[in-house]
Design a protein around this nucleic acid. Sequence first.
DNA 1: GGTAAATTCAATCTATCAATTGAATGATGT
DNA 2: ACATCATTCAATTGATAGATTGAATTTACC
Lengths: 223, 223
Amino acid sequence: MSSPNPAGVVRAALAEVAKAFGHEHRVELIEQLAQGPRSVEAIAERIGVSVANTSQHLRQLHRTGLVTARRSGKRVIYRLAEASEADIVALLGSLRRVAEHAVASMERVAGEYFHARDRLEPVAAADLAIRLREGSVTLLDVRPADEFALGRLPGALNIPLNQLRQRLAELPRDRQIVAYCRGPYCVLSFEAVAELRANGFDVRRFQDGYSEWKAAGLPVEAV
Amino acid sequence: MSSPNPAGVVRAALAEVAKAFGHEHRVELIEQLAQGPRSVEAIAERIGVSVANTSQHLRQLHRTGLVTARRSGKRVIYRLAEASEADIVALLGSLRRVAEHAVASMERVAGEYFHARDRLEPVAAADLAIRLREGSVTLLDVRPADEFALGRLPGALNIPLNQLRQRLAELPRDRQIVAYCRGPYCVLSFEAVAELRANGFDVRRFQDGYSEWKAAGLPVEAV
DNA sequence: GGTAAATTCAATCTATCAATTGAATGATGT
DNA sequence: ACATCATTCAATTGATAGATTGAATTTACC
């Protein structure tokens, strides 16, 4: 009789995991870590929060068992707990789907900003995998160069969104382009598709992002 | 430019939904409502929390958009927001999968208490649906009678767990029995299977529960 | 061994949240 | 209209979480 009330323990565990996701900073931390391992400093800089504060939130995620830490030289590298990585990305997806209908502010954003969604002809992961194998598309990664360096879809070309306008010449006009960034609500790829279409390219948007591709066990490249 | 930073809005929305799940009571409220609409009083009594407190938590879920309320005579009946119902049940599942690996206390419970899981030969929803259509199994609902009355799998026989021992005669010995209760970690069906096996019945466990069956759009019966 | 850099710890203050109580509201039935 | 019941609101208290600061650890590198 070491566990007095299994149903209660399970509920407490669910609530604990939910609490870990219950702060905007931590959601962002998890989104970052879903792309791959990062040091405290690297994450703090990217999300614009003090190092000490970032460290606190990471410790909390660690306590809940969502992330693991290892030392590498001077830095501590955090990553999503390996056993849960795919489940955590799936959980982010579940939260997003619920929020889409439930939370008023998000419904508005989803409506306003992503209204163009259907027109961008999103490509599903399975389709994209097939077309990559066929070699029938050019993959465009519009994330910042440092994120690209840490991991990307196989064969992707990296043109960060803010350089896109100057580097249009690097893109093919005779093949379809599929643009992606971090995840399904990452804005970069939306803007990239809009920009490229305005310039006459045949371009579609990958409906998920790097995190989901990786979590699905599909092949990735790194330096 | 009505939404200044879409990614931020999305993250805030996710965190808000997560917060709503970030308390044991609210997880239990949601689990209850996943079975069907209930009044404040009915829920409060079942989960053993004061009516006032239950009302507060329900109001919070309402603010987040997870539940809707309507008046019916003296009572206010809450239910999961229709547009999100299936997504909410899926979110509970995601939380559970993450917690299983991440949260130490739950891992222990999952190990200790549900170790017998495989031996109970869980039946998946799709399989169960087929076998019900064939009429090749007897379905046993071991939840309390009031929950059964509010909704159940088609053709199920209700014997609440605490009456099971006295009512074994009502169960067939020449057909397989499939027992279910509220959800995948609901203890009732685990105990029912154990009890029935000890008495020589051919019995398996439905791996999900009423909530999941209903959320999957499979047919249900009610009074 | 000593110094510098990255991270964590400890302590503090503030804000938010949970639970409780009693009063208020809204609907019902006489 | 009045009494009653279910629920909500408002106000209070205690508990918890977040941000911030500076000191303490841990490791790297000389």
